[in-house]
Design a protein around this nucleic acid. Structure first.
Lengths: 359, 359
DNA sequence: GTGAAAGCGCTAACAA
DNA sequence: TTGTTAGCGCTTTCAC
C-alpha cells in the first residue's frame, strides 16, 4: 500500500497500465490496440493482445463507460418472470440485444409499483442507454417517466403500456385478437358467451374486453351483464370468476378468458364442480403457456407473438437511441392469431338447456 | 461547449457538482449528505436532498463504483429462461438480491458454450462482485472459471455444476430424489421400470440416473438394459425415447423421466400411439412445470426447491464476498420431495401382459 | 461539520 | 504510428 498506488480490492484486476508497463508503451496505445482502433500497427496490436490474454485482462466497463459516456446497456423492467409470456418476451429481448452487441440489465417488479420505481432509479443510475418497461398492475404514478423523457433516454413500453404520449410502445393487437376469438365462437354457433376480463385500468384488460364487446355488437349477439366479470389476470381470478358465473345459476355456453392463467382457474373450478370442458362449458382464452396441448382438453387460444414483441421492443429502443432528437416515438402493434385446439372448435351440446344448479 | 466544460451527451445528467454549485458547498459535502454520511449536519442534508430531488439527480453508479471499487452487483448466467425451473430459480435470486440491496445482471446462454463465455467476459468487465452460473449443456472448457478464482471473485455454480474444486455449488439432491421416486414405484408393486435419462456428461443427468440405479439395486429389481435410454432433457428426447421403448416390443409398466419436458414428450408419444396413461403405461418424472395438475392425467413428480435454490445461491455468493480469503467453498444440497398426483399412485393393470406391438 | 486534493481505469482530442 | 494531456463523476483520505 506504500509505493504501489494500485489498490487491490480483492484478487488482481489487471489494468491498461499493467499491460502498457510490461510492453514499455503508453496506456493509450494499449487502449487503442485492444479496441481495434486503426491507429496502431498490426505488430503492436498482436503483442498487446497476447499480453492482455496472458495477464487475464478484462477491460473495466465502469471506467470505459464513464469516460465514453455510454454504457451499451439497455435496462428492462418486467412485472414477472416465471410466466411463459414474459419469459418468452425476455428471450426475444436478449437475442436481439446480443445481436446488436448490447448488454441487458433485467429487473423484476413483481407487480409492485414501489419496486418498479426503485428499479427505474437503479437503472437510471447505471446510466443505461435505454429502457424497456412493462408496467406493473399497480403502477399509478407516471412522473418518473416524464423525467426520463426530459433526460432524453429512450423508453419503450411493452405490452403493459400507459396512456402517455412521447414514448415508444410495442404491443400485441389485443383488441383485434379478442375480436377474432369471439367472432369465431359466434361463427360456430355460440350465443351465450361469458367473459372473464382483467383489470380495467390496464391497457390489455381494456383492449381485450373491448374486442369481446366489439365482436358481440358486430354480430348482434346480446351481452349478458352477469356474464361479464372483471377481475385480475391470475389463476385465482379465473377460479373465482367461474364460481361467480356458476352462482348465477345460468351458465354460458362458452367462456372467453382474458389470460391463460385465468383460463386455468376455470379448468380447476370446472373440475371441482364436476363439469366437463367443453361438454358442460366451453372455453377460449387469450394467451398461451407453451403447454397448451397437454391440457385436458387442449385449449384453443389467441396466440401472441411474444418473442417478436421482445425483439421489436429492443430494436425500436435502439433506433430511438441512434436517431436521438430526430426520433419520432413509434407505436408498434403486432398481429395475434387464433390457434384452435380441442376447445371451442364446434358448438357443443346443441341447444343445451341452461343448467340451473344450487350452490 | 465553450465555457461549460460539462459534456452533454444527450439530455441532461445532473451531477454532484451541479448540486454543489447551486448550494455554494463542495462536491464532497453533497456526496456525503446524499449517502447519509454522519459528517454532515441535518440542516444541510435536508437542503441538499431537496435540491437533488428538484433537479432530478441520479447518482452515477459508473463513477461511484469506479471510485469505490465495488459494484454491488451479482452476475447471473443461466442456460434458458423460458423454463419453469429457471424462471423460478431466478425469481429466488432476484428476491434475495433485492433484500440484500444488490443488483442482478442476468444473462442467458441459450445452452450455448460460446455465448456463455462471452457473458462471463462481459460480467467480469462489468466488475460484478460475484457470479452465479448454471452451465450450458455444451460447456466443456473450464479455464475461465480458474481465472475467475484467481481474481478472487466469488463464483457459485447452481444446478448444473462442473466437477471442479474451489467453487460454491448449490444443487437439489438429485440422486436422493430419483431414488425416492423409484423406491415409491417399486413399493407400489412395479418391477418393470424404464428410465429415460438425460445427458450423461452433466451432473443432473448422472445423478438422477444413479438414483434410479441405486433404488433398483437396493430392492433387487432387475434392470432391463433396453429400458434405459439416455438422451437429452427436452420434449423431443422424451418423445423419441418413448418411441424407442415402443419399438422394443416390450413396454415397461412405468417410466421414470429425467425432466418434466421429457415426460411431456412421453405424454405426446403415448397419445399418438393411442396408449393411455397410466393404464397402458405409467409415468413419474423429475421436476415440475407449475402446470402439473392440469395435465391429463396430472403427473406425479419429484419436486425441486427451485426458488430456494436461487435464494441460497445468492446468499452463499454474498457470504463468500464478505468473508473473502477466509471463505471456504460451500456445497449446498437441498432436499427434494415426491409429489403424488394421479400417475404412479398404485400399480395399474395388475400383472398385465407385456404388449407386443408392431411398429 | 466542511472541503481540497488525489485518484479509480479508461477514452478523446490533439500533438509529436 | 505513438504519446500527452485532460477529463468522465464520484469517493476517500486528511487537513481545516
Amino acid at each position: 500500500m506504500s509505493q504501489k498506488t494500485k489498490a487491490e480490492p480483492r484478487g488482481f484486476q489487471i489494468t491498461l497500465a499493467d499491460i502498457a508497463r510490461k510492453l514499455g508503451v503508453s496506456k493509450v496505445t494499449v487502449s487503442k490496440a485492444l479496441r481495434g482502433h486503426p491507429d496502431i500497427s498490426r505488430e503492436t496490436v498482436k503483442k498487446i493482445k497476447a499480453i492482455a490474454r496472458e495477464l487475464g485482462y478484462y477491460p473495466n466497463f465502469m471506467a470505459r463507460n464513464l469516460s465514453s459516456q455510454k454504457s451499451n446497456t439497455i435496462g428492462v423492467i418486467v412485472p414477472k418472470i416465471a410466466h411463459h409470456f414474459f419469459a418468452s418476451v425476455i428471450e426475444g429481448i436478449y437475442d436481439a440485444a446480443f445481436q446488436h452487441n448490447y448488454e441487458i440489465i433485467l429487473t423484476v417488479s413483481q407487480e409492485n409499483a414501489e419496486r418498479e420505481l426503485q428499479h427505474v432509479n437503479s437503472l437510471l443510475s447505471m446510466r443505461v442507454d435505454g429502457l424497456i418497461l412493462s408496467l406493473s398492475q399497480q403502477t399509478k404514478d407516471y412522473t418518473v417517466f416524464h423525467t426520463i423523457r426530459k433526460k432524453g433516454i429512450p423508453l419503450t413500453f411493452m405490452d403493459r403500456v400507459p396512456k402517455l404520449d412521447g414514448f415508444n410502445t410495442v404491443v400485441a393487437d389485443d383488441r383485434a385478437g379478442a375480436f377474432t376469438a369471439i367472432e369465431h365462437a359466434i361463427n360456430i354457433g355460440y350465443r351465450n358467451i361469458a367473459h372473464l376480463g382483467g383489470y380495467q385500468h390496464t391497457n390489455i384488460g381494456i383492449e381485450r374486453s373491448q374486442g369481446f364487446l366489439d365482436a358481440m355488437k358486430r354480430h348482434d349477439v346480446p351481452v349478458n351483464r352477469e356474464w361479464i366479470i372483471y377481475g385480475g389476470f391470475d389463476e385465482t381470478d379465473g377460479y373465482k370468476g367461474f364460481m361467480k358465473l356458476h352462482e348465477t345459476g345460468r351458465m354460458p355456453e362458452v367462456i372467453f378468458a382474458v389470460t391463460f392463467p385465468v383460463a386455468l382457474g376455470v379448468y380447476r373450478a370446472a373440475e371441482e364442480l364436476g363439469m366437463k370442458i367443453p361438454r358442460d362449458v366451453d372455453i377460449l382464452c387469450f394467451g398461451n403457456s407453451g403447454l397448451n396441448q397437454f391440457l385436458a382438453p387442449p385449449m384453443s387460444y389467441v396466440d401472441q407473438p411474444t418473442y417478436e414483441l421482445g425483439r421489436r421492443a429492443l430494436e425500436v429502443t435502439l433506433e430511438n437511441l441512434q436517431q436521438g432528437e430526430l426520433f419520432v416515438p413509434q407505436h408498434i402493434k403486432l398481429p395475434t392469431h387464433l390457434v384452435l385446439c380441442k376447445t371451442c372448435t364446434k358448438k357443443v351440446a346443441g341447444t343445451r338447456k341452461v343448467r340451473s344448479l344450487q350452490v
